[in-house]
């Protein structure tokens, strides 16, 4: 049986809002370690990988592995019914055909209970090995979101160039071009404002902004985004959770 209690419903709300436009049907695999999701978008360009570690929950038990096949659009509708500050408990039997969500308002005795029917979802699981990346950058997630939104007004593609002392984001379109250059900086008072670059090799990669627009929906999950890039392989965009992560693997675009 699964019983996982979040101190605040807002975390799961944010997670679901962050991925529901990338993938619709996905299996939430629950184990003693927490809840994981892996799913690929319909165009098979973007892979979502989520781990909500058991330490995120104020109470968590899951005796044996349980798979919850969830339609995220329906899940999002139910989860919006709860208040952000409510306790939220997910409950499921061992071979469930539904999952129960219990919201408890902390300021009153109100308890709201919803159940969502589960689906049989047949998805392949991709094996993702740890890779050495040419470059790893860490920067404020909100800045990355703004840069991508600004440049998406010009082009469908975002070019990212990384050298040891700068990160350059570029977009070239029919109406004009744009670029934003960032330099590494350490902010001691506000570490979340820092920008770091770790470089093994200089990087020049191009990505579809349509996918990046979905990735930046994870911005509210973490102050910082970690971007790991190698030339000609999928980039990893990561928002860290208190325990776990939301990762997006995005296949690059390139000239043949």
């Amino acid at each position: 049986m699964l019983e996982g209690k979040f101190e605040e419903a807002s975390l799961l709300k944010k997670v679901v809002e962050s991925i529901k436009d990338s993938v619709q049907l996905c299996n939430f695999v629950c184990s003693e370690h927490g809840i994981t999701v892996q799913a690929v978008d319909d165009s098979r360009v973007l892979l979502v990988s989520l781990l909500i570690g058991n330490e995120v929950f104020s109470d968590y038990r899951c005796d044996r592995n349980i798979t919850l096949g969830v339609d995220l659009k329906s899940f999002a509708k139910i989860i919006r019914c709860g208040g952000n500050d409510d306790y939220l408990t997910l409950i499921a039997e061992d071979s469930p055909d539904s999952v129960t969500l219990v919201f408890e308002d902390k300021n009153s005795d109100r308890i709201s209970e919803y159940s969502l029917k589960l689906m049989e979802i047949d998805n392949e699981f991709l094996k993702i090995d740890d890779m050495d990346y040419d470059s790893v950058i860490k920067m404020p997630s909100i800045d990355f979101q703004k840069i991508c939104r600004d440049l998406s007004t010009l082009s469908e593609s975002l070019q990212i160039l990384i050298t040891k002392d700068s990160i350059k984001f570029m977009a070239e379109g029919e109406t004009g071009n744009g670029s934003v250059i960032l330099k590494p900086r350490t902010d001691i008072d506000k570490p979340e404002q820092s920008i770091t670059v770790k470089l093994n090799n200089a990087v020049n990669s191009t990505f579809g902004l349509k996918y990046i627009a979905d990735i930046v929906k994870g911005t509210s999950l973490s102050n910082q985004i970690v971007i790991k890039i190698s030339n000609r392989t999928p980039a990893l965009f990561e928002y860290k959770l208190q325990s776990g992560y939301l990762r997006f693997y995005l296949a690059p675009k390139f000239e043949d």
Binding site: R44, L47, G208, P234, A251
Partner: peptide, 14 residues
């Protein structure tokens, strides 16, 4: 314009 690669070109099904 550049070609969009698929994620399956890089990761294998386990």
């Amino acid at each position: 314009s550049p070609m969009q690669k698929k994620i399956y070109n890089y990761f294998v099904t386990s």
